[in-house]
């Protein structure tokens, strides 16, 4: 059986169930790199140019690990655009070329182009092209891809319930449902690009830490797409980065949600879209406390911990004050 290596980074978080199902139906076995760890990071930092963002460095580390395994193909998708008239980011568009330039002796690469910025035609052709690599007849790969999409939908249903994308993938793979954390006394909207936010090493465990501090977390994946798009459309110009627009729409929607006490945006240092979107949101936030956290490989976990603690304390204080003033003005 042919083995296909997939990096546990970047769009793994958004598409793994689709990709895994697809390749399995192509008759291949899927090999995933391990969870991000010290070695992944070290390799990534060594291989990638200094100026690139942390998530891309981490991706390099994962690919490096896969290359040392016994795999027949390396899956390196070029995710240009996953919806009309929008992009992810230039780095996603150049990723296969970047990896090829920095690592010699790569196994044969499957560099599937995912670009639906204009229409679906190219994607369909790409699916069939990959089908051919595995000796599939016309139409066969498309059916597998559709099946993959159905699996992906199962996973997304889990994330709508409040599991992070990482947890959702695990449950989808058959892990038992984790016990619900709690109890909570604060409700926080937590935003960021999925591959940063849900990678415990990149995000320095922000999800776990906040839950431990008594926060019930609301993620963008829990919101309705319609609501997100409606809110994002209130900006004078359409945000042409898919994730950026999702973050703007989510934060505006969360601002309206009376349950939510405060909003945190985890941005990556060196991320182009984040450098514009993080502040655009800040300017729009009128009624809710908003914290923009920018992290990279040099950020210390202790410092982050302190900031989160201070944020939670502040929210609790505010709540008790507004509670008191409510009592006094009506008492």
């Amino acid at each position: 059986m042919k083995k296909v290596g997939i990096a546990r980074a970047l769009f793994y978080y958004y598409y793994y169930p689709l990709w895994k199902t697809f390749f399995q139906e192509m008759g291949a076995e899927v090999l995933l790199s391990r969870e991000t760890n010290k070695l992944t990071i070290q390799n990534g930092i060594d291989l990638a140019v200094d100026e690139t963002c942390f998530p891309v460095k981490v991706y390099y580390g994962h690919v490096q690990e896969l290359c040392r395994q016994n795999i027949d193909y390396l899956f390196l998708p070029r995710v240009v655009s996953i919806e009309p008239r929008s992009y992810i980011c230039p780095k996603f568009m150049g990723l296969p070329d970047m990896i090829k330039a920095s690592m010699l002796d790569l196994p044969p690469v499957i560099d599937m182009v995912i670009d639906v910025s204009i229409n679906n035609k190219m994607l369909k052709r790409e699916i069939e092209r990959i089908g051919k690599i595995f000796g599939r007849r016309q139409g066969n790969a498309s059916a597998a891809y559709d099946h993959g999409l159905a699996e992906l939908e199962k996973c997304r249903a889990l994330s709508r319930q409040g599991f992070t994308l990482r947890e959702a993938v695990k449950i989808w793979e058959g892990d038992p449902l984790p016990p619900l954390p709690g109890p909570f006394d604060l409700n926080i909207g937590l935003l960021g690009h999925g591959y940063s936010l849900y990678d415990p090493v990149i995000s320095m465990n922000i999800v776990h830490t906040l839950r431990e501090m008594g926060c019930r977390l609301y993620f963008p994946e829990m919101l309705e797409m319609e609501d997100i798009e409606r809110e994002a459309a209130t900006l004078p110009k359409r945000v042409f980065w898919t994730l950026g627009r999702k973050m703007v729409g989510s934060s505006l929607q969360m601002e309206k949600d009376p349950r939510i006490d405060g909003i945190i945006y985890l941005a990556s240092f060196g991320c182009g879209p984040d450098s514009m979107i993080g502040e655009t949101i800040e300017r729009k936030m009128k009624d809710k406390v908003y914290m923009l956290l920018t992290v990279d490989e040099h950020t210390g976990e202790a410092g982050l911990h302190t900031r989160l603690e201070a944020f939670c304390d502040m929210l609790r204080r505010r709540r008790s004050i507004s509670h008191e003033s409510y009592l006094s003005s009506h008492g």
């Binding site: 100026e51 230039p90 780095k91 150049g94 970047m98 991320c271």
Partner: peptide, 11 residues
């Protein structure tokens, strides 16, 4: 932090 140029730089 210029994204297209970081791609080029990497190559």
């Amino acid at each position: 932090t210029c994204m297209p140029e970081i791609v080029a730089h990497s190559i």
